[in-house]
Design a protein around this nucleic acid. Sequence first.
DNA 1: GCATGATCATGC
DNA 2: GCATGATCATGC
Length: 436
Amino acid sequence: MYQGVIVEDSSNIGEKEYSGKGSFGQYLEEVFFGITNNSESKPDFIDAGLELKTAPLKELKNGELAVKERIVLGIINFDSIIEETFEKSHFLEKNLHILLVFYVYDKLAALENIQVNLVDIWNCVEQDETQIKKDWETIVGKIRRGKAHEISEGDTLYLGACTKGATRATSQVPQPFSDILAHRRAFSFKIQYVRYIYQSLMEKRQASVKRKKIADTIRITQNRTESIDQIIKEAFCRHKGKDAFTICKDLGLPYNPKAKHFYAQIVKRILGADANQRLYEFEAAGIQIKTVRIEVNGKNKESMSFKHMRYTEIVEQDWEDSDFYVDLTSKFLFIVFRRNPQNEGYFLDDVIFWNMPAEDLEEARKVWIDTQQKIQAGNYNSFVKIKDDRIVHVRPHARNAADKIITPQKTMELKRSFWLNRDYILNIVENKSYLT
DNA sequence: GCATGATCATGC
DNA sequence: GCATGATCATGC
């Protein structure tokens, strides 16, 4: 643990070094707010009841800023949390009101030059009480059932239980209802939720400046006790067996299967939203809608691509901060269309709400590490292939052969992505039938 | 029939 | 102009 001196006057500042992850947070607390860094589990601004959290943003190629990481909210004590209720939880005591400081991440900049982009207060209970409580109870439920070692990021929507500690081997701790050691974990706002927080705070600010109206959002879980997947299932059941053309006709949507958001539009409408309305839970949880087409032979033709990787970025990243990790730990909503042998069209057969099981995520991690090492070594022609049968593979994902990006070796390489193997997708789809 | 490389279509 | 989701084309 870091033992800091109290910064009582500015002459101390120059003597102190802030390094590593969280250095900007320490700097803000000590120099700007004049409080000592501590790992005590009391609010940082005890009198105001405010917890200070800094959140890095990264600059995208197009100049826009995007949230870089999840926000970690404090270690989960497996032994004491089982005695708590959500309303009186340690989590709520510490994190009810959070003062968020979004800043632009710059590894090389001096701390005093770091650019703060947005400061605002977020009250997760005021905004999202139902789901945050549900998530908290899901996590605590696993601990109470002696399943702390099976906690997965995929279990929850907004509040996650992320792993803590440098390595798997050195971060195993006991749990109260099982002899199996579990990975030490902390509560966090999942990165998709942080993205949502940032986006909605920015929108609020811009709307107040420009006196603009914020687009309507629908909460599909509002006034309902069912889980989000049950609600989706019910809504989709009404359209099972129809072809996409008929569904569009029945919903009053244009039939335009090549449009990028065609299936997302259908989903939206099936769930009761208009084109100009937004689905709150999908945005706040970053749920990915993916379509799968099954041919007459019972198989899908295609693997599933994700956004292309940036070779210079991946060599510097930890697995858990990588784009691919964020993608794979999202909830997925697979919309399954099946080829109709009579008329060659596709009909809606199933929707599957899915998240990747921990052991598969671990396999994906190994492939990611393998890829990272090969990029580091400048080896761009021996990535994991689909034939290797390792759940995911690496493959080109470019506009054409000339569509290249820079590498750590300063050469140009074809854009590539991680892909989910087509067999793996088929397996998900065939084993988890959902609409009955 | 499938793996793999390559590319398309759309929208922001 | 490019990201992204999706799909095509070729050769083994």
